[in-house]
Design a protein around this nucleic acid. Structure first.
Lengths: 163, 163
DNA sequence: GTAAATGTCTTAGCTACTAAGGGAACGTGG
DNA sequence: CCACGTTCCCTTAGTAGCTAAGACATTTAC
């Protein structure tokens, strides 16, 4: 279906389409987490750990990225560790810190559950040319940048509300 | 920046970019809800009410769309109603049902908080040609369809897990 | 007219979060 | 070396929102 002509769209249509995608993805995430016996927050943190790769995250890093308190992270790590997704490791340079390492077998466990959807998405992407993918990816990246800017501005101006 | 050539992208890059966008949006949603004195679930339900427009949703509809129990919906509607976002109305045809109507003033209240980000996104969209927007919108729509299919399949095969 | 089904609300209990503080480890300045 | 403040994670107490199960009113079917 490469290069199939599509009817042109308006910004409003694109925005609405994006909202629907995000809503669907949110529910999917919830289902996936439930199936793995985790919470959405746990799964998100596990994703952060995977994304960080070899330079292991600390518990505090996770708190910052997931926007939760360090107290919450303790619970999250307890669950993830007990379920065999991560292990806590001492930091050789700073004994206060706790570094979080992913358990290799757990990665494939998550991927196994997610494989169905992941394959479908990859197949969908294969339906587009590299140039079209470039447009889509570019937009994703810029929209993400905007979202981060927006969040920063919110947090800078008034961390607590006034409404 | 219409028609600016972009470096071609791979499916994996696109998928990763999508994940980041969704993660950012998720946190933004949380911030927005907090600022409005609501939970993310409340805000999501309010969005469903707005989307439904004039044919008012019932409490049960909301439970189905938000994937929560009807007991939870009672709490959600209590909060939304107390904060002045919606009103409960009797259904003339079926006195068991509760129909949910949005309070007009509340719509602009939410939009006021969201306006900053919304304007930036719209501006971003304006940077793309109608044809490029068509590609993006098309992809959103098809990815959403896939997500829904995946969810349906999950719920059909085994509503509860086996792991 | 009775029985089953439907739609919302209630109740009890659970889980994950925050806020506040504690104790160990770091790092700086005398 | 050694107090001092800081940083990091964990603990504790309290809260909020969810589920599950059932009550109650209403509708539908036979």
């Amino acid at each position: 279906m490469h290069g199939t002509p599509r009817p042109p769209a308006t910004p409003a249509e694109a925005l609405s389409a994006m909202d629907h995608l995000i809503a669907a993805h949110l529910i999917g995430q919830q289902e996936l987490a439930r199936r793995l016996g985790l919470t959405v927050t746990d799964l998100t943190c596990f994703a952060f750990v995977l994304e960080a790769g070899d330079d292991l995250l600390t518990a505090g890093d996770l708190a910052a990225r997931a926007h939760v308190t360090t107290g919450a992270v303790t619970g999250i790590l307890n669950r993830l560790e007990r379920a065999g997704y991560v292990t806590r490791r001492p930091d050789p340079a700073d004994r206060r810190r706790v570094r979080v390492a992913a358990v290799p077998a757990a990665v494939s466990r998550v991927e196994a559950v997610y494989a169905g959807h992941y394959k479908r998405l990859t197949a969908l992407f294969a339906d587009y040319s590299a140039e079209e993918l470039a447009i889509i990816t570019d937009w994703f990246t810029r929209a993400t940048g905007l979202a981060h800017e927006y969040l920063e501005k919110l947090n800078r101006n008034d961390p607590d509300e006034e409404c």
